[in-house]
């Protein structure tokens, strides 16, 4: 019965959160981990109930019914032999799940670097130049993807609960996490290692796409969306945004997030705000209100109107949009 209750509550919890939950897997590793979790939880509940039942039976047994020898035999079997066998079986069953997925040289590599408090992303398809992005990861469903995880300032941890276990991002080394998504959808990943004031505000969107759609997106993403030379462009130049951010070939990718395809992102500020021009403008004028400890300086001297013009220009995905 406890097993049933657990299974039902797992389903209910899954219903609450489908985009960031190890109970709602969309990848091979998370799926096998969920299998282990369910079996271990139900098994532990069953064992707890059985022990309680034996305890009650022993306490209620009439005098003279239980022998010392029988008790010792019970301890030997239920206390030593059966636990050893059960634990051995669980170990033999669970160990293969710890084996990393095999990856080949031709698999897509995605390099993700953790920064306080955002994610630098570079898609490195075999035999093609890299494509830069930030705070969003797109994956082809059914294909093996190798994440190369690094950090530049402090230790972060890359965790997409529905896809795989977490993996630390450590300055000075590159960790590999091999994953395979198996269900298209929009999900969320987070930083899982305390990294500073806005640690809890460091997340990213994960978009698992059908392979054909992914290939089409990757090809299209190589062409930066055209942006007019309007007031927004002038503000971008005047305020020196390019000394930290890149828009297409203008600017640097070594300091702040790449903004080339900013308009396409599902969230703003690494997974914390709705991607509206108003929020973007407010973020530009006072980033620390939304993200304490962020390295971006406040542009409070911009008027609301100017900030909005800059935000609209940044958010452009096509020339017609945002007029």
């Amino acid at each position: 019965m406890a097993g049933g209750v657990l299974a039902v509550s797992a389903l209910v919890l899954t219903g609450c959160n489908r985009h960031q939950s190890a109970l709602a897997p969309f990848g091979l590793e998370a799926r096998s981990t969920l299998g282990l979790t369910v079996v271990l939880t139900i098994g532990a509940a069953a064992i707890a109930l059985a022990v309680a039942a034996i305890y009650v039976a022993a306490a209620r047994a009439p005098e003279g019914r239980l022998s010392h020898k029988g008790g010792m035999r019970l301890v030997l079997w239920l206390g030593a032999i059966i636990p050893t066998v059960v634990l051995t079986a669980l170990l033999l069953w669970a160990l293969p799940a710890m084996r990393p997925l095999p990856a080949e040289a031709g698999d897509l590599r995605i390099r993700v670097e953790g920064e306080q408090f955002w994610w630098r992303v570079a898609y490195r398809p075999p035999g093609a130049p890299p494509l830069f992005s930030a705070n969003e990861v797109r994956l082809p469903v059914g294909r093996t993807v190798v994440f190369e995880l690094a950090a530049t300032d402090v230790v972060h941890s890359f965790w997409i609960p529905g896809l795989a276990g977490k993996m630390d991002m450590i300055p000075g080394r590159t960790n590999r996490l091999v994953v395979k998504a198996d269900k298209p959808g929009t999900y969320r990943g987070v930083c899982a290692e305390f990294c500073g004031l806005s640690h809890a505000l460091m997340a990213f969107d994960v978009i698992a796409m059908e392979p054909a759609a992914f290939d089409a997106w990757l090809a299209a993403a190589r062409t930066a969306p055209p942006r007019p030379q309007d007031r927004g462009a002038a503000l971008f130049a005047r305020e020196g945004c390019a000394s930290c951010h890149a828009v297409a070939d203008n600017g640097t990718r070594d300091i702040g997030p790449d903004l080339t395809r900013f308009g396409e992102r599902l969230t703003l500020g690494a997974g914390i705000l709705a991607p509206t021009p108003e929020n973007t403008a407010a973020f530009i004028r006072d980033p620390h209100r939304f993200k304490p400890g962020a390295r971006m300086p406040a542009y409070a001297h911009l008027s609301e109107d100017e900030a909005l013009a800059l935000a609209r220009w940044l958010k452009r995905t096509s020339p017609e949009e945002g007029r």
């Binding site: 051995t88 170990l91 160990l95 293969p96 990393p100």
Partner: peptide, 22 residues
């Protein structure tokens, strides 16, 4: 001795199954 025997087996099993440096 019984406990240690099982302990040694449990320590050795991951090598058989994983064999990977990660």
């Amino acid at each position: 001795a019984g406990l240690s025997f099982v302990g040694v087996l449990f320590t050795a099993l991951p090598v058989v199954f994983i064999g990977d440096c990660r």
